[in-house]
Design a protein around this nucleic acid. Sequence first.
DNA 1: GCGACAG
DNA 2: ATCTTGTCGC
Length: 224
Amino acid sequence: MSASVRTVAEALAVQEQLRPLVDLVGPGPDAPATVAGLDVAYAEEGDRLAAAVTVLDTRTLAVVDSAVVVGRPAFGYVPGLFAFRELPALLDALGGLRTLPELLVCDGHGLAHPRRFGLACHLGVVTGLPAIGVGKTPLVGDWASPGRERGAWSPLSDGGEVVGRVLRTRDGVKPVFVSVGHRVSLANATAQVLALTPRFRLPETTRTADRLCRDALAAGTSRS
DNA sequence: GCGACAG
DNA sequence: ATCTTGTCGC
């Protein structure tokens, strides 16, 4: 059985150990048939959470499979160590799927992380699946505002390297922060996010997973 | 030393 | 993350 990470020192050690395993070559699925979205919702008290994963048919963007589990945060909220909080529950949820998705779209960052190992990298390495991160707010890096049109983007740079892209998914709407997680190129990650945002700022994967875990938290149950 | 800091 | 109120745009 794998011992859970309990201290900051342990978490940092795990990141250092797993970071070299990230596949930066990609390029990832060209036209994936299925894409999964993952998200977590917290109870007001903060002692309970629900983790959900939804699998969408990329052609119709319909949910074809899903799983949700209720549990406890596995770690305190520490920027840079965020994955240790949600990963156990997310892995539980992934285990409840009947379909193996071709790409994971994570709610958070991948390489756009202080040590280049955000949630999307961690989830990708642990599952072996291609993964990307889509964050709503920045964690690290500097960038210029992208053009106002959907599809416009600008490089997200940190420490002299490009760690992601600031991508406008809808005309005139606040951009999102896209970064590579595992086995996907940055260009492909950008294309996948645009394919998942025909109508709203956030990917349909994130939206469906968000709704599922919120509902599960309200119901206080776990099902798939 | 002081702020910033994914969800 | 979550809560709440308010405002703008379609």
